[in-house]
Nucleic acid binder design. Sequence first.
DNA 1: CGCTATTTGTTCAGCGATTGAATTATTTGC
DNA 2: GCAAATAATTCAATCGCTGAACAAATAGCG
Lengths: 412, 412
Amino acid sequence: MSLTHAPAGAVRQGSLRELNLALVLGRIAAADRPPSRADLATATGLTRATVSAVVEDLLAGRLVSESDPAPRSGAGRPARGLVLADQGPAGLGLEVNVDYLAVCVVDLAGQVRHRTVHRADLRPVAPADALARLVEMAGAAREDAARHGLTLVGAALAVPGLVDDAGLVRLAPNLGWRDVPVPALLAEHPPLVEQVPGVPALTVDNEANLAALGELHSQPPGPSSFLHISGEVGIGAGIVLDGALFRGVRGWSGEIGHLPVHPEGRPCRCGGQGCLEQYAGQEAIVAAAGLARAELPADTATARLAELAEAGDANALRALHDAGTALGVAVASVVNLLDLDTVVLGGGYAALAPWLCPPVLAEISARVLTAAWSPVTVRPSRLGAEAAAVGAAGSVARRIVAQPAGWLARSG
Amino acid sequence: MSLTHAPAGAVRQGSLRELNLALVLGRIAAADRPPSRADLATATGLTRATVSAVVEDLLAGRLVSESDPAPRSGAGRPARGLVLADQGPAGLGLEVNVDYLAVCVVDLAGQVRHRTVHRADLRPVAPADALARLVEMAGAAREDAARHGLTLVGAALAVPGLVDDAGLVRLAPNLGWRDVPVPALLAEHPPLVEQVPGVPALTVDNEANLAALGELHSQPPGPSSFLHISGEVGIGAGIVLDGALFRGVRGWSGEIGHLPVHPEGRPCRCGGQGCLEQYAGQEAIVAAAGLARAELPADTATARLAELAEAGDANALRALHDAGTALGVAVASVVNLLDLDTVVLGGGYAALAPWLCPPVLAEISARVLTAAWSPVTVRPSRLGAEAAAVGAAGSVARRIVAQPAGWLARSG
DNA sequence: CGCTATTTGTTCAGCGATTGAATTATTTGC
DNA sequence: GCAAATAATTCAATCGCTGAACAAATAGCG
């Protein structure tokens, strides 16, 4: 229903080809079967002649390759199928979290081609040292990628905190980071990726945002608008609207953990009262289940909760039900506000989804005016704990698909 | 930070001109002074030759006209200023509300060129009859517009309720409408507007959404992302993100009135509990202020409240403060979620803003994590009660600006 | 008053990309 | 073996942008 947006800048002569390169490549990426040139022509509205010319450029630039034709019945010359190349540009995903470092490489098709996780408590580690370790892991990842014919063209770093436009980590409370200038710190190491026009060498983003992007680009394709909630010690959300992450005016959207669910309730360290985090955060659930915190390292708390709930432990079940109800109140607010029909429970919530979903759905159906006309789906995330790193790498790869001209200009 | 979006469809030969027509016209519309062709060339990145050719088309199509040059110091041939034409296409805005019908005409520049309001209690009137009256008013508006050289190219109707994609009014509780097929009812009358390719003859939308669009296009230009809250008997919100209305998956976004602000609080007719509407809706404020409802027609309730508050009536002041606090809890949720920096109080709230803003701001600063880094502005709406009708008409006019090719194809 | 510098706007040959029709390539079905 | 059908390419024509040259109009200055 919204007005079609014109491209932001001028539409110059050459832009025409750039736009059609992106259009055709995007179609190839979105197709569930390798499309032929003729398929692309009918799907895009371009003529076959134009599609052939565009595809020739894409083949020359090694962004797509020809594959076995999609099976077809009837007479006629057989088609040649087109698929995203499994060699060529790829994205590097980095993640610093409370209890692990992760690095991964994702290719154009969204496949994870490399993954390394290094478990360690990062809270006592200085930011510069944590990043240095990450750089070391990334170096190994790059070599591995090169052996598969992949060239890293950009990196994205996920951190559990607020990041500003310049990549400065303003505040990552659970990590103990404050005002960490990530790009400057990484600039002291040799460059991780090859520069490509139109692809930033490094972006830094909130973990919840990148996890949502990971979910968006996971296979098979899901809805293009949804809410992705990362339930860890803090609770963050990534809001995907019409296939694009919504970042807000300053990039700080999705702070669902501080939605007031009991306005006169428990005080929160954010200064507010009755924030969701105080009722559905990891620590709150653990406390409500009667577990001693000392004997529960952060990274096993959800596993332990799931175990207890599976075994029918009454305290754990009650704690999860109450957390789910609080979460449902917050989710009902979001759905009333944004009219989304899909909510994905990610991070630590993914493993607890069997117990969280019912109370969340109950609150939604009780509190959302339009739920009667169209149901809301609540389901666990597809990707595991490393959704953010995969989403980070994927966001780089997607950028090449969305703007192939930069890569093509580079490789001649 | 977001990826630049390519146009949805194919970029064909002629699309290039279409896009540049929209680009140049958009610049003329956005400029605060009449720009010259040279200004447009530097602003858009196109060459002066291209801009001249594009402007020639726009002049021929009567979408822009030449005006006195913008004052400039220094030597050189004087520029010819370009402004949006005050004759040519215009949008028709229609509104059915509980206690009035409104019709208005807005030209390309966003100026209101005609306005008619007909006060009446519409609740006992059948939808078909209400629409028939509106058509009659629209006929007069069209004649008046024609005398000013304006051609109506599309109509938008604002209703206080939920509307689906096809224009069916699923539910307008305060009006007593349910499943009213507006397009079909209007099709029985002679057409209101001239058909132009790319401009729908009629769109039906929620009043809160269109009021937000009215605010977006009001002069002088404000922020491109904000929340607009229409506080009437019900409370609706229009969410504007990056200069575009966000409608949600099914077009039912902005139901802020049913955000739970006291999850275990008063039951709401929506079936939920503790909805904002029960604490900050018109009826709730009136009741809290101790006013007898019988002696207060809906359309004077807010005026009476403002009067009492102005006079220092303790009950009214307390009622407004409590309502503002409840509203602030809901607004804090929205700001945490979407990271907006501007909240506009519209509808009945506009007149009550002096008393509502302080408690709203207090809740925001207490509950929004990022408020410390960047303040949130809360202010009353600029447009009056007919914001929705003006926004409706303006949305049609803006569509011509965004897609001038359709109009130009029509008028040769 | 006349000259120069400066800025605006137009003209025009050139060029890149799309277009549509014709052509070639390759397979199925009779 | 031949006709029909579908895929992909070739090529002259056309559309719209480009860049440079040119014409128009004014202020500043001697």
